[in-house]
Design a binder for these strands. Structure first.
Lengths: 317, 317
DNA sequence: CTGTTAGCGCCTTCAA
DNA sequence: TTGAAGGCGCTAACAG
């Protein structure tokens, strides 16, 4: 035991000289950097900020710093990100991009860096996986629409190349199938952006049998869809019900507030962080549920007026 | 000069062994970390993601990594942020929080860490300042509204404690004064959040002489205001014109699209980064302009109907 | 339980 | 031009 007086004096000196241990020296000798990497596609996409924040919060709480990097959906940037992570000797990397590059993964794996992925990849030695149950929320959404009386239900998907977008689309088709109302012509491709949702909805509105409800692959798409509906002189949810996906912060503040499927970014972040710092001994697969949250963009179909509405020119769009 | 063959073999070996220099060792000996700190209030606030992205982009381009931290508007967290930055021996810190804590600043300054602030603080030795010309855009906005024929123009401010919010409010009052239409009763306090904008607008709508146009201290406030207007059964811009501030990404997608004053986060980010890595030799003050961007939330006042509208009960809100 | 020492991986200096 | 050596600040292992 050290003399209490001495202890005081040491702390006083620390205070006095504003002494801070040098993490670089510490890392050098210990081999541990106390840094976690977080790679996202684009922090500007409203899906990510909460994820980043959540990740930061739990990492910080556990004594880690976070190196955030955006790939900007660009695999060259991704390579740079990985390199920087490696140079900084991160103790784990969360790759939350939905895209991935096997070569880079191999590089990380070769360094024994723990990794966690969102949706993609197969769990392994130091490789965890967050698997989102998209189907759950989508089933809830379809069930909700069917219960309201909708039969012509459409889907605006994400970009065809994105695996998690495929999963959502397939879940949608499967859910409709259960009610015997599936129809592939009512699936149109969007791009997970507002502009894509707008364009997709215009195509849907031009259909001979216009859908009475549309589910979007993400909220941005749904917002674009709402714009298209309004531009066509129609109204949500009177003429068309719309359901989003993700429940981004903004969904609460659209007009009308968007009924959507919540995918908790906080939960994603927490699980990703836990997967890396290994509190969850041995667990390699982390399921995340999704659930419908009801707001005001869905209502029963307005069938009475349908005939009149069809006669209306669609040229406004 | 080294033998070309040798050079080849060395590079081959680097590739073969996947050699990466250890930044920690490098930092230890050189004293340079190649890390820049970026402290923001809350990355979840839509103002910040673009700022973070821009900062990251230019820092990365210059060979720096970025340590991002959120203070969550909490000065304890701020202290932790500063400490972590210091431990990692950052070569500069951008403090983009609009709040600041003199003690912490002194701590940074004592370490000779270059700093750059947004709005607050006074430039000095290693202390740069980004000064936003809020008045410019606000003047443009007021001018625009007056040109449309508005006279009862109100303002929903930010939180009273925030210096940059005061600046905006004062600029507004001054601009109105030039036209002889200033009236302090038409300034109500918001909180830079949607809920505050909503509440503030409800108060404004209850005024005997209801304003025909309202300028918001930021876009989130403006969005809340739009909701309040709609809830009261009125319409933007027919009954009330609304102008936001910041031009967050979302402003383009509100209904109607929001006329607002643009404050470029990219420019902020670039200047902050330059201020730190010292490309701009000796410059300590970095002005940033703001400009009105016209969209669809402003229109001439609907004076003819005003009488009738006034008679309408406000109870809906 | 305290004090000493070697060495983490790199860069810089100085000698050969 | 090349090679060897010292030390950055810290931790871990070991001796006293």
């Amino acid at each position: 035991m050290v003399e209490p007086g001495t202890r005081e004096r040491v702390f006083a000196a620390i205070e006095e000289l504003k002494y801070y241990p040098d993490t670089h020296a510490r890392s050098l000798v210990s081999g541990r950097s106390r840094i976690l990497g977080l790679i996202v596609s684009d922090i500007t996409n409203p899906f990510f900020p909460e994820l980043v924040k959540g990740f930061e919060d739990v990492a910080t709480a556990r004594g880690y710093d976070v190196l955030v990097s955006s790939t900007n959906y660009n695999s060259e940037r991704m390579a740079l990100c990985v390199r920087r992570m490696l140079e900084r000797k991160v103790e784990g990397v969360a790759i939350m991009t939905s895209e991935m590059d096997d070569k880079l993964i191999a590089q990380l794996a070769g360094r024994n860096v723990p990794m966690v992925f969102l949706d993609v990849g197969t769990p392994g030695e130091r490789l965890s996986n967050i698997v989102v149950d998209y189907a759950m929320g989508i089933n809830e959404a379809v069930e909700h629409l069917v219960a309201l009386g909708h039969e012509r239900i459409a889907f605006v998907s994400g970009p065809a190349g994105l695996q998690s977008a495929q999963v959502r689309r397939d879940a949608f088709l499967k859910a409709l199938h259960r009610y015997g109302i599936g129809d592939r012509r009512r699936v149109v491709e969007g791009d997970h952006k507002v502009s894509g949702g707008l364009a997709a909805m215009e195509r849907l509105l031009a259909l001979a049998e216009r859908p009475t409800a549309v589910l979007a692959s993400n909220d941005l798409t749904a917002i674009g869809m709402m714009r298209a509906v309004r531009r066509a002189g129609l109204s949500v949810p009177r003429d068309i019900s719309i359901v989003g996906f993700d429940d981004i912060w903004l969904a609460e503040f659209t007009e009308p507030p968007l009924t959507t499927v919540r995918l908790s970014r906080l939960e994603l972040a927490e699980k990703a962080c836990c997967a890396l710092v290994g509190t969850s001994a041995g667990q390699r697969v982390f399921p995340v549920e999704t659930h419908l949250v009801l707001r005001e963009s869905t209502a029963p179909p307005h069938t009475v007026e349908a005939g009149r509405e069809f006669a209306r020119p669609q040229a406004f769009s």
